[in-house]
Nucleic acid binder design. Sequence first.
DNA 1: CGCCTTTGACCAGCGC
DNA 2: GCGCTGGTCAAAGGCG
Length: 519
Amino acid sequence: MPTLTIPIYFFFLFSLCISISPNTYMDNRHHHREFTFLSSAHFLDHIDPPSIKEMDFFSTSSPRDHKNNTSSRDTNDDHYQNRDDQHDTHDRHGSPTRVIDHRVNTGLNLTCASAGVTKAENGENPETELSSLESELLRLQEENNKLRNVLDHITKSYTQLQAQLFIALQNLPQNMETKIVDPGTSRKLDVVNDASVSDEKTDQDVSVSRSNNAEACPDAAEDVLDRSSSQSWGSSKLEEQPKTTAEQLPADQIPLRKARVSVRARSEAPMISDGCQWRKYGQKMAKGNPCPRAYYRCTMAVGCPVRKQVQRSADDKTVLITSYEGNHNHPLPPAATAMANTTSAAAAMLLSGSAASKESLTNSAGYYSSTIPYASMATLSASAPFPTITLDLTQNPNNAAMQLHRVPPGHGGATFPLPLHAAASGGPHLLGHPLFFQQKLLPPQALMPLLQRQPSSMVETVSAAIASDPNFTAALAAAISSIIGVPRGGNDGNNNNSGSGAIPGSPQLPQSCTTFSTN
DNA sequence: CGCCTTTGACCAGCGC
DNA sequence: GCGCTGGTCAAAGGCG
């Protein structure tokens, strides 16, 4: 899980900006630029100021040589050029009115610095333009420094998360740890241990370690999840253990073998498209529900442990409840990545809080309360055989957005509130595919047309839903402002790998995230 | 022919 | 121990 958190965080930001209305978040090219820094694999190429190319920019650029200007700019910013058609069209056409926009538009109406100035308006001379470009360069350097600070902050949060995870795991009874992990999962514990070791490293080391883990071991990010979820599908292994193993443990420390991420959405379709290929392997009538429950397994790879259940709500048959278990062991198509991230991260959150004790669950709930702004309630319910985190896309935003269901013996029905709110300290961060976790529950009227669109994609649905929620803008603004301290922009549309397809061997890690460094 | 769905059988966990 | 329930298996049949 730790290896997943930072990438997911940025993935969240990227996803947000993909999802959010262009009018609100993507109306400025600097907005693109800054998040391109974050999202691009060239991040490091641009963060070291000033580069040779930048120097060439000054040495060769003629104030009236728009071709050179364009070329130079493209050299520096080519990674976002294509995503900035509006501005670059001017460039490519050699328009003399190309805007040299000094605004730092965050997309959140947090504008600062000087207003845009055009060459035509100024009738500038070479010295003026040179000065202007120099000032812009300085500004960009400052931005880079600020971005570094942001990275430092995030990395520290990541480190803290690792520490908390390690502490939580240490709270596990030793024998339980031994019994849970079969030989095939020993590597997974190593990952956890690596995470703990990395706590002692510098932020830079942490970052590098994270990246290496993600790249060298595509499943590393899921390994912690696999410890429970994948094993859960091989539950027979666990069940082969002496029954006294669980009985000997305090009720609230019994290892949870399964974590389920349930998505409630309104849909008339028999199944919500989530980008994966599923094969139906069973159907049962569940007690208390006149609608049958269908069982699907992922068929995108042999042996993929991911399965899902689809069932209509007994209360409202327009509500389709899709429950996911397990983690994919194969690359995912772009359309499926977000959902996979969501379920994995949700399970991670759930398990990290439930793997140890009730106390740790409470603690983790408190911790996640700082990371999941819109989750509102954790419920200990006897209605679920194993912990289920429900992402409810059907309810009113004033109601519970996400619920934790956990069934420790003897705790059925107990409920404790989780005052989940946007974290001033961390903002929208870390665990979970924030596209879902960070979202505010949208009004049904906003969701209905989206969810009823057929065929529907869950990713598209939620993205559109987020985009349609004006309150989310304010929440995002507050969250980002709290962690960045200065206005920041949105992204360029690093569209969840949609442009380049799934990341081979790293289906759940945004490619860009493997390039982060705190250097 | 291969893939998929359907559906009854089977198994395990759990409560009484 | 028995029955209920959830989950999975696998044979049979449908479909392109």
